[in-house]
Design a binder for these strands. Sequence first.
DNA 1: GCAAAATGCTAACTGTAGCAAGCACACTAG
DNA 2: CTAGTGTGCTTGCTACAGTTAGCATTTTGC
Lengths: 133, 133
Amino acid sequence: MAPTLVHDLGSYLREQRTAAQLSLRQLSELAGISNPYLSQIERGLKKPSAEILQQIARALQVSAESLYVRAGILDAANPDPHQCDVLHAIAADGRLNDRQRQALIDVYRSFVGNTHVDPAPSHPSSSPSSTHA
Amino acid sequence: MAPTLVHDLGSYLREQRTAAQLSLRQLSELAGISNPYLSQIERGLKKPSAEILQQIARALQVSAESLYVRAGILDAANPDPHQCDVLHAIAADGRLNDRQRQALIDVYRSFVGNTHVDPAPSHPSSSPSSTHA
DNA sequence: GCAAAATGCTAACTGTAGCAAGCACACTAG
DNA sequence: CTAGTGTGCTTGCTACAGTTAGCATTTTGC
């Protein structure tokens, strides 16, 4: 797709690595990959697979998702972390197949009315519902 | 690494594809990949990259994350952003009354099996990964 | 001054992801 | 029975992710 993204990923990784006071070899050892390869990733010469990214994320103690987003293999259109409504949870549940997902959504909507999930949460802080049912 | 996971991914994909009434060629076209390759992925012979997974996820209209988890490149027990699982979300939803809540939970459990939410105190793997701003 | 050990980078190689071409089989016309 | 189109699968092949071995440079210590 966009090699710019890969380069951006590289810069970001190098940034994070230096911020963590780690040398190429140190981080590569931590991540379980070779140091030349890490070097090439950081300079945008190579495009790491998701597995490699995950290992690097672990070593750097950053979230794998953030790296995936930078690598362009996950959409940045991620909902707010603290937003935890039912529809989002259903959408994110990998154990459900599509029809199950839809069924749950239908049931839920029949209960609460057709408030559909808005991509831009307008007032996230206000949890209108009393936590007490 | 774990070919079992890859095979599991393949089965899952084939399941989703047939559920969506799509042939190999149809889905491969939708996903923008070759049909032999998709066939091999489904049978666990090839290990698709995250990019390919994302394209397949889009074509199948399932979340990329769920495929990543199945592919073993994202942790299911993710300490990260969307920690919102369905049961927690249902429990937290103030718009539901108790009966509705229970109904939804029942439906959900009938779908995913009775894996009940385990508020596991152990967060064994990485740290909170505050990627900060 | 010279070693030794850091640092990051280059070169050559291997394995495999992902492709285009084509096969074998099933089904439905004609 | 043969010709068409659908299904999924096998076969090479190319490109590139990721490796090991080693280079050039700087820094530290004698």
